[in-house]
Simulated scan of single mutants.
Amino acid sequence: MNDRIRTDIAHNARVWNYWLGGKDNYPVDRAVGDQVTGFYPSIGEVARADRAFLGRAVTLLAAEHGVRQFLDIGTGLPTADNTHEVAQRAAADARIVYVDNDPIVLTHARALLTSAPEGITEYVDADAHDPEKIVAAAGATLDLSRPVAVMMLGILNFVLDTDEARSIVRTLMDAVPAGSYLVLTHPTLEPELGGEGNKDAMAFWNENATPPITARSRAEFASFFDGLDLLDPGIVSCSRWRPASGESAVVAQFGAVGRKP
C-alpha cells in the first residue's frame, strides 16, 4: 500500500468512485458519500452525468474534429469508458496522457496504461497546481506542435483561488497550438441548475473530507474560456451538452468545450 494513502479520512477520488458504483473505496468514503448525498440527493446523478459528458466530448473531438492527442488532468480512479478507451474507439492511433497526484489513482494507474497497438497511453504523477511540470512531462508523449484536447473535468473546483485557476488554464492552453481544445466541467451553486443544495454539501465535505472544494458562478466558469471559441451549445449543465437520448436532466455541474483559434 502506498504510504501516502490515508484510510481514516474520506478522499474525493474514492468517494467519486463510490458514487459511480465502483469498489475502490473505504468505509469512511462510503459514510461521507452517504452523508453528502443526504445534503444533496442528486450528487450521484452529477457524477454519472460528468462521466457521460466525458464520453460525448471525447468521441466528438476524436471522431469529428480529428483530435488525436488528449491530456486528461485530474484523471480519477479507472472506471468504465476511460478517456483512452473512448478516444481509441473512435481513433485507434490516439495518444492519451493521464495526470493525477492522488496516490490512490497512482496505485491503479496500470489499468489506465492499456492502449490500442496504434496509439499510446501514459500516466504522469503531477499536481494540477503545477501546470509547467504537466506540460513538460506531457511533451514526452504528446507532440505539442499538434492539437491537444486539454481535459479538466471536475478538477478546477479543487483550486480554491479563481485567479490561480485561470492562470493554470492559461499556462496549459498557451502550451498547445491553434486547433487545440479545452474540455471543462465544474460544480456551481447557481439556482438555474439546481445548485442551492450544493452549498451545505460542500460545507460538510470541506469539514470532513479532502481535498477542499469550491463552486463557481457561470461568469467565473466562462472566464476559463477567455480567448477560446465555445462549441455549441456553449456553457450548459454538463448533462445538457449534446445529450444522448434520455440523458438530459439538469445537474448542477457546468460543462463546455472551447477551441483555441
Rank of each mutant, 00 (worst) to 15 (best):
G44E: 14
Q35A: 11
T59G: 15
P187Q: 12
G154M: 07
E207G: 11
T188Y: 02
R51N: 05
A140R: 15
P233T: 07
T188F: 02
D8R: 00
G179S: 12
V99R: 00
A116Q: 12
H65Q: 15
L160I: 14
S237Q: 10
G38A: 15
N17R: 01
T37R: 12
V15C: 08
T75H: 05
N206R: 09
E192N: 05
M151W: 05
Q35Y: 07
D130N: 11
Y18G: 01
A244S: 15
L142Q: 02
G66W: 10
R48W: 14
G227M: 05
G197I: 07
A116T: 11
A92V: 12
A87K: 09
S115G: 09
S180A: 10
P177V: 01
L54F: 13
G38L: 14
M151Y: 05
I134L: 06
D200L: 09
S217T: 15
T107R: 07
G234K: 12
I235A: 05
V28R: 04
N82W: 04
R89H: 13
N101Q: 12
V28M: 02
G55W: 12
P147W: 00
V99W: 04
L20S: 09
D81P: 08
T107Q: 11
I73V: 12
K199P: 03
V150W: 05
N25W: 02
A126D: 14
T188G: 00
A175D: 02
A222F: 06
D24A: 12
A62R: 01
G234N: 11
F224G: 01
D72C: 04
A116R: 14
